[in-house]
């Protein structure tokens, strides 16, 4: 790991100022992605600005018909939250299957979505639940937040402070995990809202995407049978030693049908 200067942020404004002033500065949240990246010398930040210790970025609260989760809320806290389990059980279930217990004891919601790993779980929940990403500067709709592989709408100096998840009528997330890392080879989050159905796919492509053919079919008839004949196109899907694009396309259908069945 290259050396860097370390700062513990005292306020959100302080953290934002530090990463804006120094172009090579980086935020650290749970460090579960960033520290392995630094060890591999894939990044060489001049400064690390630690968001741990800002209580205003933590916590889970119900606001009307949405659950608002602070960016620094760890995966274990979402998984074990009685509020999340009651309001959006699919989200608690998703969080409880990220990585392993030690990763869930450190990794955060804000870190996961800001990193936007193509195989991460949370982006599927944010998109399918039509969540709003709240930053220190503005509110960003889920559909506008995830831009491409490891790319988001966040601007320099912008910090995710919370995510607001509207409660769906029903929802479920099904993941076909990579047996070594537990990241998604394919994960599908299906959510039925008052005004339609959203189907978000992670792991399969370079960035989370919506499966709109399935959304249309499920809006008419919310059953696994309704999407039986919808084939996911292979074009542009990921292919690696774990799974070919063809296999991933097949898994999108299987995981989507299982998610619909699990949502009930």
């Amino acid at each position: 790991m290259y050396n860097f200067e370390y700062h513990k942020a005292k306020t959100i404004a302080d953290a934002s100022a530090m990463i804006t002033q120094k172009s090579e500065a980086k935020l650290v949240a749970g460090g579960m992605t960033l520290i392995p990246t630094l060890k591999l010398r894939l990044a060489k930040p001049s400064d690390l600005v630690d968001l741990n210790g800002l209580p205003e970025l933590k916590g889970i609260k119900r606001e009307g018909s949405a659950v608002v989760i602070g960016a620094m809320t760890r995966h274990v806290e979402v998984a074990e939250s009685a509020e999340v389990q009651k309001a959006i059980p699919a989200l608690a279930h998703l969080a409880s299957h990220i990585g392993d217990p030690a990763v869930r004891n450190r990794g955060t919601l804000g870190g996961s979505i800001s990193n936007n790993d193509p195989v991460a779980d949370y982006p599927a929940a944010v998109v399918a639940l039509n969540a709003t990403v709240i930053t220190n500067k503005r509110k960003i709709a889920a559909d506008a937040f995830f831009k491409g592989m490891f790319e988001t709408a966040l601007e320099p100096g912008e910090i995710v402070t919370a995510v607001s998840f509207p409660m769906p009528e029903k929802a479920a997330y099904m993941k076909f995990p990579n047996p070594a890392s537990r990241y998604a080879i394919v994960g599908v989050f299906v959510a039925k809202h008052k005004d339609g159905v959203r189907v978000a796919v992670t792991g399969a492509g370079p960035c989370v995407f919506r499966q709109k053919d399935m959304e249309a079919a499920l809006a008419k008839n919310f059953s696994a049978d309704a999407i039986k004949s919808i084939a996911q196109k292979q074009d542009g899907l990921n292919g690696d030693i774990h799974a070919s694009p063809e296999y991933r396309a097949h898994l999108v259908g299987v995981m989507a049908r299982r998610a619909v069945a699990a949502a009930g």
Partner: peptide, 19 residues
């Protein structure tokens, strides 16, 4: 490398001493 930090099991190879 799992140790407990403030009661939680974490990987001590993936956290800085300064943290």
């Amino acid at each position: 490398c799992v140790v407990h930090v403030n009661g939680d099991g974490i990987k001590s190879c993936t956290i800085l001493a300064v943290q």
